[in-house]
Structure formats: C-alpha cells, structure tokens
Simulated scan of single mutants.
Amino acid sequence: MSQPTPAPIPTDRLHFALPPDGLSGDELRQHRKERLAAALRLFGRYGYDEGVAGHVTVRDPEFEDCFWVNPFGVPFGHITVSELILVNGDGQVVEGGYHVNQAAFVVHAQVHRARPEVVAVAHSHSTYGRALAALGEPLEPITQDACAFYEDHALLDDYTGVIVDEDEGRRIAATLGPHKAVILRNHGLLTVGDSVDAAAWWFLQMERACEIQLAAKAAGRPVRIGHGDAVATREQLGSDLVAWINYQPLHTSVLRGEPDLLS
C-alpha cells in the first residue's frame, strides 16, 4: 500500500527563526540587550559565573565604541535587561547604575576595536576551558562538533597575570586574529560572533569540546578526523549563522523559563 501524499503546507504557516533584519537603531539596541540578558542567564544556568569574573559584551548599534555588558557583582542568573550597563571604549560607564569589571573589560574593548565586524564577545572562567588552558593545548578535531573550531581558533601560549592594561588586551586581540575563539593559557576561553547568540553558542560549544577532549585523552588515544574532512565539516558547521540557528532552542528555553529577565 502506497504512502499517502502529504498535503501542502502554506509557507505563511511555517515558522523557522532567523536573525532579525531591518530593525531600527532603537529596536536593534533593545533586541541586542534582550539577547545579552538571556545569554547571561543561560551562562548562569551552566555555572559559568564565578565570583565577579566573566563578561559578555555586545556592541551598541549607534555608538560603535560603546558596549552593553553585565554589571559588576550581579550574578549571571539574576541579570535583567534594565540592569545592563553601557560602557565606552575607555571603560567608563555612560549609562546604568553599576560599575564595570575594568580588568576584564580591557580585553573586550580591544577585541571589539580590532574586529569591527564582531558584534559580541564572550569570556568566562568555565571549568573545562580553564582545564584545557592549563595544559596549553588547542582543540583537536576529534569530534564533529569540535571541527567547527578547526583552524579557526588560536592559543595565547603565555600567562602574564590578571589583565589590567590595554597592551595586554591588544595582544589577546592580535592572537585571536580573524578567528572565532582563543584559548588563553592558564586562564580560559574567549569567543566572538556577529550576534550575541553566535558568540554565546561558540562559547558553549568550545567549553563542551574542551570537556570531551579532556575525557577522551584521559581514557585513551582519540582518533583525529583527517584534515580534509575537518575542513569540510567546519565549512558546514562553523558559520555564525549556523551558530545562531543552533542556539535558538537554548534561547527559547531560558526566555520561557525566566521571562523576568526582560524587565
């Protein structure tokens, strides 16, 4: 017996989320702030906040050398849109009622300045990112997901203490180069993207890839994916658009579960 022919579905009834297009300055600013607050809540769920360490920044759509960022001392899991602060490239708070973590912001400002196409930067002291950073090793192409970072991340193979000056921030930005991520030896991970969603997804995926690499090496000798296949997989999975699409279920989960973040 043949299978029934499915009835055609009108395209106006199909729903698939894509990045917004054509937003005005104020609309785009509000959109970016809402995505930033949601990403920080998600990072809180994953335990990526520790003390006052960690930042996610997003470029203001009008003032390109100003960035929205989480306020100093507020737990990731409690942050709301109204608590986000706007900080200029010199680390001065120009809007909002909180301080900014000056030491951490130095890095973000220099990355944003070096990469004008980057909209968002994510950095936090996650467990497995720090563990791999302590080994001074890059990610290896040992899983399909890790191939998204194949030849598209860098290793800053040095440690000079807590970053407090612009020169060190510029060195990190230079090491990052054109890539989507950098491993800071003895420190942790930093990822970038053309949206908050992309930067957050790359951080989540890089942290997971670090965890898997550490576990695989502890169990034995991982089998690397060959160069050609790793490059091809990166071309399929490694774009910011693919990152944005992959991130949407997580964004929906945190938004539905914690709608107060929009206040």
Score class of each variant (00 low, 15 high):
Arg115His: 11
Arg115Thr: 07
Arg115Asn: 14
Arg115Val: 07
Pro116Gly: 04
Pro116Lys: 05
Glu117Gly: 13
Glu117Cys: 00
Val118Cys: 10
Val119Leu: 15
Val119Cys: 12
Ala120Thr: 08
Val121Pro: 01
Ala122Gln: 02
Ser124Ile: 05
Ser124Asn: 14
Ser124Phe: 15
His125Cys: 11
His125Ala: 05
His125Arg: 10
Thr127Gly: 00
Thr127Trp: 01
Thr127Leu: 15
Tyr128Glu: 04
Tyr128Asn: 14
Tyr128Gln: 06
Gly129Cys: 09
Gly129His: 06
Gly129Phe: 11
Gly129Trp: 11
Arg130Ser: 03
Leu132Pro: 03
Ala133Trp: 03
Ala134Leu: 14
Leu135Gln: 15
Gly136Leu: 14
Gly136Met: 12
Gly136Asp: 11
Gly136Tyr: 10
Glu137Trp: 02
Glu137Gly: 00
Pro138Met: 05
Pro138His: 01
Pro138Arg: 12
Leu139Cys: 08
Glu140Cys: 06
Pro141Arg: 02
Ile142Val: 15
Thr143Asp: 08
Gln144His: 15
Asp145Thr: 14
Asp145Gln: 13
Asp145Met: 12
Asp145Val: 07
Ala146Phe: 06
Ala146Gly: 11
Cys147Val: 08
Cys147Ala: 14
Ala148Cys: 05
Ala148Arg: 15
Ala148Ser: 14
Ala148Pro: 00
Tyr150Leu: 07
Glu151His: 13
Asp152Pro: 02
His153Glu: 08
His153Gly: 02
His153Met: 12
His153Thr: 10
Ala154Met: 09
Ala154Asp: 06
Ala154His: 11
Leu156Ile: 04
Leu156Lys: 12
Leu156Arg: 14
Asp157Tyr: 13
Tyr159Ala: 10
Tyr159Arg: 04
Thr160Ile: 06
Thr160Gln: 12
Thr160Gly: 03
Thr160Asn: 07
Gly161His: 09
Gly161Glu: 08
Val162His: 00
Val162Phe: 11
Val162Ile: 15
Ile163Ala: 10
Ile163Tyr: 03
Ile163Lys: 01
Ile163Gly: 01
Asp165Arg: 13
Glu166Tyr: 00
Glu166Gln: 14
Glu166Ser: 13
Glu166Thr: 15
Gly169Tyr: 07
Gly169Gln: 09
Arg170Pro: 01
Ile172Cys: 10
Ile172Phe: 05
Ala174Ser: 13
Ala174Lys: 14
Thr175Pro: 00
Leu176Met: 14
Leu176Trp: 03
Leu176Pro: 03
Gly177Pro: 05
His179Gly: 01
His179Ala: 14
Lys180Gly: 13
Lys180Cys: 14
Lys180Met: 07
Lys180Ile: 14
Lys180Arg: 15
Ala181His: 06
Val182Glu: 01
Val182Tyr: 02
Ile183Ser: 04
Leu184Phe: 10
Leu184Val: 07
Leu184Trp: 03
Arg185Trp: 01
Asn186Gly: 00
Asn186Val: 08
His187Val: 09
His187Glu: 07
Gly188Leu: 09
Gly188Met: 04
Leu189Asn: 10
Leu189Tyr: 04
Leu190Thr: 01
Leu190Ala: 03
Leu190Ile: 10
Thr191Glu: 08
Thr191Gln: 03
Val192Thr: 15
Val192Phe: 04
Gly193Gln: 06
Gly193Arg: 01
